[in-house]
Structures are given as structure tokens and as C-alpha cells.
Design a protein around this nucleic acid. Structure first.
Length: 157
DNA sequence: GCCAACGTTGGC
DNA sequence: GCCAACGTTGGC
């Protein structure tokens, strides 16, 4: 059996939901609903309780990794896919076999200074990061242990 | 199964 | 606001 991944990155637009919103939420947590991309969904399905997550602000000034969260349960069906009035309603999803899942995450810490995309691109150790690949739009992505360690080191500088 | 058209993401 | 890259849809 392949070893399970332990580290991830999740994107959010701060004007919609920021890391401060997460930190202020009930139990400093939130349901990561609204994901409607199969690859991102599959990564959420692979998550386990306790997995660590880099929280990324997209469409931000500047776009940056702003802190850490953790996964607090395994994936389960996202109720918003069945809510007709919801922006993420999916009429093609069968309630007997829901198409979309979510996980819940909890705030761990916010970095004293965000690590901007520009800063991350200066690090040759991070060349392989999914986030830094050209055209990369995945909102939920795996992070290697090596990348994770490197980013935490940058965050503590 | 191909692929053009379209909608979305997200950096700049 | 622009636009490149990507994913999805739907005609054929």
C-alpha cells in the first residue's frame, strides 16, 4: 500500500473566506464546501484526520501562503450540492451517490508574515511545488514533506 | 471519441 | 481589465 500523504495546500480568496475568518469561526474551524473539481475532490477524499494544510490566499494582494490549518475529519458528502438555491448546487449529483465531498479544517496558526508567491518562486527547493507550476489552478493540492519543511523554515525566518 | 466553444481561475 | 491555462460541455 502506498504511504498516505500528510501535507496539503488549499486555496481561498480572502475576500470570500480568509484565514482570519477561519481563526474566528466556530471551534476555529470550517466546512470546506463548494469544491467542484474532480482532482481537488479526490485529494480531499485522500485526506486523513490530522493532516496538515497550507492555507493560501488567491486573488489577493499579494497572493501568498498565510498560515496553517489541519484536517479534523475524513471526507463526507457536501450538502450544498443538493441545495437548489446554493451557488454550488449540482443538479446532476445523485443523492444516492453524491458526487462532491468536503472535509472540515481547523486553524492552527497564522504566519507572522505571509509567504508571497514571488518569495516562494525564489526558492529552488520549491521548484516542483504544484502551486508554482505554470497554469496550476487546483484549489486543493498535495505538498511533499520536503516542501512542507522548507516552507515552515521560511515562515520562521 | 474528437474537438470547438465556453466558463472559470487567478496572476499580473 | 487582460489574458493564458485549464476543465467541462455538447454537437457531430
Amino acid at each position: 500500500m502506498a504511504p498516505s500523504r500528510r501535507y496539503w495546500l488549499m486555496k481561498s480568496e480572502p475576500s470570500v473566506f480568509s484565514i482570519d475568518d477561519l481563526a474566528r469561526g466556530p471551534n476555529r474551524s470550517t466546512c470546506w464546501d463548494g469544491v467542484r473539481n474532480y482532482q481537488a475532490r479526490n485529494f480531499m477524499r485522500a485526506m486523513q484526520e490530522g493532516d496538515q494544510v497550507l492555507f493560501y490566499h488567491s486573488n489577493a494582494t499579494p497572493p501568498a501562503i498565510v498560515g496553517i490549518a489541519e484536517v479534523i475529519n475524513t471526507a463526507y458528502p457536501d450538502p450544498t450540492q443538493f441545495e437548489r438555491s446554493n451557488q454550488h448546487f449540482d443538479p446532476k449529483s445523485d443523492p444516492q451517490n453524491p458526487r462532491w465531498d468536503l472535509v472540515e479544517i481547523r486553524h492552527v496558526r497564522t504566519f507572522a508574515s505571509p509567504l508571497s508567491l514571488t518569495r516562494l518562486r525564489e526558492e529552488s527547493a520549491l521548484d516542483g511545488m504544484v502551486l508554482l507550476q505554470k497554469g496550476s489552478r487546483l484549489s486543493v493540492q498535495p505538498v511533499t514533506e520536503k516542501e512542507w519543511r522548507h516552507i515552515l523554515k521560511l515562515a520562521s525566518e
